[in-house]
Design a protein around this nucleic acid. Structure first.
Lengths: 211, 211
DNA sequence: TACATTACTGACCGGTCAGTCAGTAATGTA
DNA sequence: TACATTACTGACTGACCGGTCAGTAATGTA
């Protein structure tokens, strides 16, 4: 046994970077193991700091959880909004862009774990769940609703119950993301190709919406 | 303060009934709070026994979890199988029966919480997840696949990627069940009427499958 | 080089909870 | 009624982990 190998790397002071690194590590572990089963020491270790450092930036485990969710909502909502406003082509294309865009930008990134995390922990953190609903779910629904409505107004889609259809349409994509962080990893399952899955979903959907 | 009110009910010896009552209580609490955040004492209390009694019937918290899942798979899989074999009408009707049947028999019962529980805890219990996949997910997929295939063979449905379509089709129903035990309760949302939701899903689906 | 500031560390504390077991009382048997 | 069996209880224990804080070392300043 030598005392000099794998010596801990020298301390670094990086006040700016820490919070991001900590929430990123927390997101990974919370989605993997769940909130209660994740130890703060593991989060700190993954972020390359000690547990004490974590408490310099977050008041408590719960505050860290909140930060993870708050941070997870920022990106891409505006992306979708501008896409909606600037899009020129058919409503089908718009719908496809919105759904595929979500998958590629968020679903496939670590942020794709947020829906699973929210599903698992909503009951234990009703405040955070309400926040998430207001700032993510509802705006997302509005986006899809407008796209659907546009297609119906232009006669490209037949009339449907828009409020319900929005959730029906998004469910498969959501499940795709949730799957990734739950049953998916436990079994090989290379056959579950996301692209084929989304293509099939889209094919069924567009045909189902035709007048 | 009187000492005689709310006196504990007299002890009862009910060896036969305990395991069921314990797994039922455990299912409720696990789905509500998650595995790690649920205390065995709370489960025992909800089942009307002490923590010690729990250990007469289950070796550990994990064993109890396994029992909850194992028990959750028994019902209704056979129901679906016989439905498939005996059904005479159109493939659309068969599909509707299978999907609505699942919702009414399982989704709306406490067993509807099992998917959320599995999603949340699969990562921590890969063995149980594999068991669930083998005994619930795969047979369920097979059922839907056969129904779809029948419709395609009879020319009632157009050709689609069956393996993918099965998951696409079931996703909204799964989400409906998962929702109930996660974000759902945290906000009023009486507008999310399951019947309307399923009708919309089915409407889109059948139209989407037409040749 | 000496000193001040502060990001960072990790040993420690106290509460919580899975799991145990000696004791209690309900039920069966004579 | 006396005795045997066993389902059931709940106080207890030890490990674990969220949260603290006195101390350390990296960085800035002169």
């Amino acid at each position: 046994m030598s005392l000099c190998d794998s010596a801990d790397p020298p301390r670094r002071r990086r006040k700016e970077a820490r919070p991001q690194e900590l929430t990123a590590a927390a997101l990974e572990l919370f989605t993997e193991r769940g909130f209660a089963a994740t130890r703060l020491e593991d989060i700190a270790a993954r972020a390359g700091v000690s547990k004490g450092t974590l408490y310099l930036y977050f008041d408590s485990k719960e505050a860290l959880f909140e930060a993870v969710i708050r941070e997870g909502i920022i990106p891409a909502m505006n992306e979708g909004r501008t896409m909606l406003e600037e899009h020129q082509g058919s409503a089908s294309e718009l719908l496809r862009c919105l759904l595929l865009g979500w998958w590629e930008l968020l679903g496939e990134s670590p942020l794709g774990g947020v829906p699973k995390l929210m599903v698992s922990e909503a009951g234990n953190f009703p405040k955070v769940a309400a926040f998430y609903r207001e700032n993510v779910i509802d705006p997302g629904r509005a986006l899809l609703r407008e796209a659907l409505q546009r297609g119906m107004d232009q006669g490209e889609f037949r009339p449907v119950d828009v409020g319900m259809a929005v959730d029906v349409i998004f469910a498969p994509i959501l499940m795709l993301a949730v799957w990734r962080y739950s049953i998916g990893p436990c079994c090989a399952e290379e056959e579950r190709d996301p692209v084929r899955f989304l293509d099939t979903h889209f094919d069924l959907l567009i045909k189902g919406l035709r007048p």
